[in-house]
């Protein structure tokens, strides 16, 4: 299982870049996040195949999602719906695509599958084989649950 920083950094860097360019926001890492365990959220699961394989699950709590959607659309949203979850799905897709580009520059050739997007209360289960990255920005918290293994 991939735990070393080298392979996780591309996901952090890609998130940082996309938040900066799309939302004009800086992100920082958090130690833990309580909100993510209780609040309704948008979960975006993206599978990786290739030299590294597994899944990356992006978890955007309701408040974070609605803040992002408001910033990007200029419109007020009160609930998680197909429009807002799809926007976040595409953002996670863009982040993952950029991360995979960096990984390929590090000689790990991988591809991503289309995002699976769900609205609900569940979170990715924490187990020994995954790494959770809790992130914070002015739109709120989010989590990336990274579970990848190396095939070379």
């Amino acid at each position: 299982m991939i735990k070393d920083k080298l392979k996780l950094t591309p996901f952090y860097d890609a998130t940082k870049d996309v938040f900066k360019s799309m939302l004009d926001l800086d992100i920082s890492k958090l130690e833990n996040n309580e909100k993510l365990n209780s609040e309704e959220n948008v979960k975006v699961e993206i599978a990786l195949i290739g030299d590294l394989s597994g899944t990356v699950i992006y978890n955007f709590p309701k408040s974070t999602t609605l803040n992002i959607v408001k910033t990007l659309s200029g419109m007020e949203f009160n609930d998680l719906d197909d429009f807002s979850s799809s926007m976040l799905g595409e953002m996670a897709n863009i982040i993952s695509g950029n991360a995979v580009t960096s990984l390929s520059e590090m000689n790990y050739k991988c591809d991503i599958k289309p995002p699976k997007i769900t609205i609900g209360n569940s979170n990715a289960d924490k187990d020994g084989s995954s790494v959770d990255m809790f992130l914070h920005s002015n739109v709120g918290e989010m989590c990336e649950h990274i579970c990848l293994s190396q095939n070379i």
């Binding site: 360019s21 799309m22 429009f83 807002s84 979850s85 799809s86 926007m87 976040l88």
Partner: peptide
């Protein structure tokens, strides 16, 4: 169908913003 059209619109907007601020830039 409402679900499909809403999903399309959400993806379209996010894609477009990123395309302009990253690729077109």
């Amino acid at each position: 169908p409402e679900k499909g059209v809403q999903q399309f619109a959400g993806k379209l907007l996010a894609w477009l913003i990123n395309h302009v601020v990253a690729t077109d830039l």
